[in-house]
Design a binder for these strands. Sequence first.
DNA 1: CTGAAAGCGCTAACAT
DNA 2: ATGTTAGCGCTTTCAG
Lengths: 350, 350
Amino acid sequence: MEVTGHISGEDVPRRSASIWDVARVAGVSQQTVSRVINGKGRVSAETRAKVLRVIEELGYRPNKLARMLAGGPVRSVTVLTSDTSLYGAAATLRGMEEAARTAGFSVGISVLEPGSGQRDVAERLNRPGEAVMVIAYDDAGVRALASLPPDVPMAAAVERRPGAEAPDPWQVWLDDRAAAAHATRYLLSLGHRTVHYVAIPSSTSDLPQRTQGWADALRAAGRPLPEPLHGGWSPRSGYLAVRPLAADPSVTAILCGNDDLALGVMRAAREAGRHIPGDLSVVGFDDSPPAAYLNPSLTTVRLDFEGLGRACFGLLHRRLDPQNAPAVPAWSEPELIVRESSAPAPGSTF
Amino acid sequence: MEVTGHISGEDVPRRSASIWDVARVAGVSQQTVSRVINGKGRVSAETRAKVLRVIEELGYRPNKLARMLAGGPVRSVTVLTSDTSLYGAAATLRGMEEAARTAGFSVGISVLEPGSGQRDVAERLNRPGEAVMVIAYDDAGVRALASLPPDVPMAAAVERRPGAEAPDPWQVWLDDRAAAAHATRYLLSLGHRTVHYVAIPSSTSDLPQRTQGWADALRAAGRPLPEPLHGGWSPRSGYLAVRPLAADPSVTAILCGNDDLALGVMRAAREAGRHIPGDLSVVGFDDSPPAAYLNPSLTTVRLDFEGLGRACFGLLHRRLDPQNAPAVPAWSEPELIVRESSAPAPGSTF
DNA sequence: CTGAAAGCGCTAACAT
DNA sequence: ATGTTAGCGCTTTCAG
């Protein structure tokens, strides 16, 4: 047999270096290596240099698992969310991540399945007591929030629960209700007799915030309150929800629970031969990136999801470390962005 | 001082129960509890029942960290991806998750920052040797893939590297090149003299697959090859990239690197007074959910990202457990979906 | 400044 | 069928 061993047997370590290997090679105690890594406790410059050199040499990387197990500093958060392809959740997530990363936290994400139970949620935590953020805009998120063990340090971005008198101090939300009311009043001000509403799925058993705001405004103005239409999250669901009404000339203004629904609604209306905004005004919710480029461009409520996500992390940070965490950053209130999809009611004198 | 202690001192465990607590209360050894939990080794039905009861009582939940540290079965994957708000990445992620969850793996996600370096990627792994999937459609993803330590078991969804003779067996991809060529030939067949292209950012230093496919088709047909336009990922970037050309009547067909770009392109064209598809045909890439509902609805290349994600996990699974992992599922090839945004060239006799 | 010892919660290998 | 013994890789004590 030829001697080829020394080529492939190039001293490849079977398993990556541990803190002990570094200590051994550097000729110091394992504890000293730990000190160098964490910058805690005083170590002579010389020793530190040597240790760092060996770390480089061996390609040593600390094992997070072990560190956490041993009760090291937390510095990590898990975000529980469902369906990252929805704009609101994705944008909130971005805000959370940015803030967490900036504060030196590493962030992991775990996606909730629609059918996930209580047991399942607990299962996702690496260890009891891990820090968690929840994006609870839909049913799965709300359930996850509810089934989180009470001892875990957490903060959540939620749809505000209607009538919550003493809101959980570890939750943040946008004032969807006021925003929906504002958008509705805007449409009424254009001369529309009433406004129809296509709802996104509710995260609560009660009326969702956006639906309530819409109803608030209609009631306050003494206008007829149509039955809300039930959409999902997708353009397709908006299309299907509105198709039965699309041709009805008495329907002149539709508010949608999100921009994707609005897209489907506009298509259903066009297919029914109606012109937007001439015959029908459509207003969305979210101001997602495509909204400004649609045809017609979409009047919509801009929501500061990223800011909300940053604030949510701010809350968590203060909870974990009340002494040193900076103040929770503010976020923007919802704002109506008027574009091409809304106009005075047909036949109105505006 | 009044005696209120027994009210608040309600025996609340300061820290959650460990396997030892269960063992102690159940009057068995800690190992027996482990056996019950994992269903390994024989335990008498009686003992098992008692242990389970105590587990329930104490609300005991195993600590994943400790389990992993101790070398327990892996059953967990981390997905590295950048920007989950892009349709392609989000859909791939969904496929990966579904497949992994189905196979009994828990999946965590870590989002790559655009500027993340080599060191940073290694940092995200909980322990050396953790199983990883990478979604490498953009620069950050490709860099992460490259800087992954060679010993980690991984699989990746990638844009195919041009000219890769021996493709990595742990990678999956869609044939973007052929799909782009097909879409381009389709436009030429409608009588367009040539086709312009708005590119998404490249993940490689070489020409991206979609750009190549487009060029392939043009060259094969002996048509002029315009300089590709460089877009980003957003509708806005498509809008900005095309605006300079939008009014040019010699531009009658534009292929876009994704649907969002196409949205921006269509708007730029309309603002320049051009009618779609009468004056200008626009074709997208991805067939994202909104595509069918746009005005006009978008002709686009449907890409099976979810299937690709499932296949990617299949690959990883076989790598981790060649004996028992099922065959890697197939995924669909790209398919051109013709809708309203494309039509015969103006003045053509088709 | 540095080292030794104990233990985080769990599983795998040996006992019995 | 169950218990005992080692670690996994790290961070806290506590001693020098």
